[in-house]
Amino acid sequence: MDGAPIIVAEGVSKKFGDNQVLTRVSLPVKERDVVCIVGPSGSGKTTLLRCLALLETPSEGRIVMQGVPISTPQPNAEIKAAGRAVRSDIGMVFQHFNLWPHMSVLENLIEAPLRAKRLPREEAIAIAERLLAKVDLADKRDAYPARLSGGQQQRVAIARALAMSPKVLLFDEATSALDPELRREVLLVMRQLASEGMTMLVVTHEMGFARHVGTRTVFMDRGEIVEEAPGAAFFDTPKTERARRFLQQFED
């Protein structure tokens, strides 16, 4: 846990019409951090992640990547350009995988490296094959997403995100859409990435993962960060009543 943060949310608020979803949330993520964001549904976890992924524009505050602002409520040309420049440094894994169904697994993996990074085809394929082996799906190289199980699809989606060699990887409830027996294979891949030092921001309902793999747990409720604690401390000694009540749900 060293050095300056890679990506920081600085006082980020987000309103959809009259609905205040985030209220001045500040969250720095340092290199090799595995920050797990937990909290009841509707607490703004996903919106925070989408702001960091530049899929939403904050109504207030800003997103800063390695000291450079990349997203503000009314971005000028300079900030927009900075956002485009770091686009591929921020990877995201979605709840519903979002693989492109008209492309094979390999094509899903090489599309962005070929077009956004302009890598030579052989190099993109080599990277893709290495990543597929890493998520244990080398034999599915030419399969189409619809032929894969949910767990396999999500592992392909993780490999696709890794193909752009991001500096930080955002997970938006990556296991929530999966049957319980398929979650493990995805969590194992995520755990492996964490152990290799990948910087991760994980919105999750998997308390086991947050407790054992996360370096930091952030508890959000009603658009605010209520509590923040390193690793397992949040689970052993929650400081606020709201956090205690939230954790009780997972006891039975």
Partner: peptide, 11 residues
Amino acid sequence: GHTEAAQVLGL
């Protein structure tokens, strides 16, 4: 979600 994935990947 398909276009969001494309956006995040830098297309």
